[in-house]
Amino acid sequence: MSDRIFGLFGVLLSIGFVLAALAIEESFLSDAVGPKAFPIIIAAILGLSSAVIALRPDPEPHWPAIGRLAEIAAAVVVMILYAEMLPVAGFVAATAFAAAYLAWRLGSSALESVLVGVGTSVGIYVIFHLALGLSLARGPWGF
């Protein structure tokens, strides 16, 4: 079933890709092939392979329980927040929080999570910023 849905999604994707390719505005100066041809060839392969996937599905993969999926979704949300907060809160604070969250969700105790978070963030800051001179996001406190 998963493969059938996946294949169907692929077919839709390829149709969307063709439509987007046809919408490319050609400039008046073009070569013999133009900017549309290759994307359309790719879309054809994409559609064809998706159709095969949908028609001849593999055995069902092992999907995690809904709780585990929520776990991954929560991690994605935290990572997005991390990316957005990085310029606002600064590297050290944001990283400490994100790393502590991941450590906690992977089964660390509360204390260990905090230690992992702070350790990772300060460690990366010292090695990459202070020692190697990589520029990281500056927060309100300058780090």
Partner: peptide
Amino acid sequence: SRILMPIVAMVSFVGIYGISG
């Protein structure tokens, strides 16, 4: 790995952020 994986994730973020900011 509960300690290792957060480090891996954060180092990946740092690397990409370091390139483009």
